[in-house]
Amino acid sequence: MTHGPGLSLLGDVRVADFSHALSGPYCTLLLADLGADVVKIEPPSGDQSRGWGPPFVGPDSLYFASVNRSKRSVVLDLKTEAGRAQALEIVSRSDVMLENWAPGTAERLGLGADEVRARNPGLVYCSISGFGKDADAGMGYDQVVQGTSGVMSLTGAEGHPTKVGIPVADLSSGMFAALAVLGALLEVRRTGTGRTIDVSMHDSMVALLTYQAAIALNTGEAPRASGNGHPSITPYGVYETADGRFNLCVGTDAQFRRLCHALLGSEVAQDPRFATNATRCAHRDALEGLIDQTVGVLTTAAVLDLLAEARVPAGPVRPLHQTLADPLLRRRDMVLGYRDEASTEALVINSPWKFDGRAPTLRRPPPRLGADTRAVLDV
Rank of each mutant, 00 (worst) to 15 (best):
S343A: 13
K354R: 15
C260F: 12
D378R: 10
E341Q: 14
V75L: 09
Q143T: 14
E187H: 10
Y338C: 05
A113L: 01
D326N: 13
T241P: 00
D292H: 10
M139E: 09
Y236Q: 03
A184L: 08
K133Q: 11
V268A: 07
V303W: 00
L182E: 09
Y338V: 03
S172Y: 08
A82F: 01
V238Q: 15
K71L: 10
D271H: 07
L369K: 11
R117P: 08
Q86S: 14
L259M: 10
G24V: 01
L34A: 13
R189C: 00
V297C: 14
R93Q: 15
G83A: 09
T162F: 11
S70E: 13
S49V: 13
E187L: 10
D114H: 14
D77E: 07
P59G: 02
P167D: 06
A325N: 06
G24P: 00
L78H: 03
S8K: 06
G337V: 00
A359Q: 00
V250L: 09
D198T: 12
P161V: 09
R363G: 10
V91M: 05
R339L: 02
A157C: 01
V75P: 05
R318Q: 13
L209M: 15
R224E: 12
A242K: 12
T105C: 01
G370F: 11
Q270I: 00
G251A: 14
R119Q: 12
G83D: 13
V57D: 02
T294K: 12
S127G: 01
G265T: 13
H321S: 08
V199K: 03
I197C: 03
P55M: 12
C281S: 07
D253L: 01
P365C: 01
M334K: 03
A180M: 11
H321C: 02
R50A: 08
R224V: 04
R258D: 02
Q322T: 11
G58K: 10
Q146C: 04
A106M: 07
V312I: 08
T373V: 10
A275C: 10
F56T: 02
S70K: 08
L287S: 03
V96I: 10
A85W: 04
E99T: 00
T80V: 03
S200C: 10
L22S: 05
P235C: 09
G130V: 01
D60V: 06
A207H: 12
G35V: 13
A262E: 04
Q143P: 02
E187F: 00
L171N: 08
V303I: 13
G112M: 04
S45D: 08
M205T: 02
L10H: 02
R189K: 09
G156A: 04
V39F: 13
R245C: 07
D305Q: 12
T276R: 05
T323F: 04
V297R: 15
C281I: 05
G83Q: 10
S49W: 04
P313K: 14
A65L: 05
R358S: 04
E240R: 15
V67R: 00
R224S: 14
Y141I: 09
V268F: 06
N247L: 14
Y211Q: 13
L328Q: 15
F256W: 04
D356R: 09
I215Q: 12
H160Q: 07
A242D: 11
D292F: 01
G24H: 06
S66F: 01
A286L: 14
D326W: 12
P231Q: 04
A85C: 07
R50D: 02
D253T: 14
S127W: 00
A21D: 04
G265F: 11
L263V: 05
F274R: 02
A32P: 12
Y239F: 15
